[in-house]
Amino acid sequence: MYRSLFDKEWLKVRWVFLAYIILTISVLVYIASDLRHTFEMKGAIKNWLAITIHHEMYFSSLRYLPMLGGFALAIFQFVPESFDNRFRLSFHLPINEIKLLLYMVILGLGAIIIVDLITIGGFIAVSSSFFPAEIVSASYQTMIPWFMAGLVTYLGIATAVVEPNWYLRIVLGLITYFTASLYTQGTIYMQYNHVLATYAIPILLLTITIIFPGHRLRKGAK
């Protein structure tokens, strides 16, 4: 049963998942070419100092990418189910509705985490050829809350899409927007490092929020 569900989810998200990976790689290639260009034009030391002294973020083009990816995955995974009552067909499968929704969410989170790992791996590979370990390490630590924003966006938008009532969908969309924006406020390196565990709390809460609109959908709420 889970294997069939996995195949069904894969069919829905494969193109957007692939597009998200391609977009991520494209942004990494852009960062690498931009670094090569500024190193050539301004000299390496000025680029290093702009980071160590002025906290310039050469990877800021990655800031909203996880949010975009989370949003797109949630839309592609849940919109086809939420319209034309298709979810209600799925609810007739011999699997508990809560388990079904959580399984779908776990698959979506898995897809996001795979792209996050590709991003971090690619980013470290690109950065290490231009910068010493201190800058590379400070940079990917700075990006961790952005990945968390991606998880918040995915979970929040998935909840909003499953919700059958448009008015509540908007409320859930707003909650998602404001919550995700908590993770992208940073203006200097490593600003969140000491509070990352606390910022994980809203994400943990969001992992189960999809159950409520799922229940409402099954009950036929409008």
Binding site: T159, I175, F178, T179, L182, T209, I211, F212
Partner: peptide
Amino acid sequence: NLKKLSRYAIILVLIISASVFL
């Protein structure tokens, strides 16, 4: 039950965001 918990999870996230932004 989990359905109720899920609703309260949404409310708690709303409370967190509202207590930052309001």
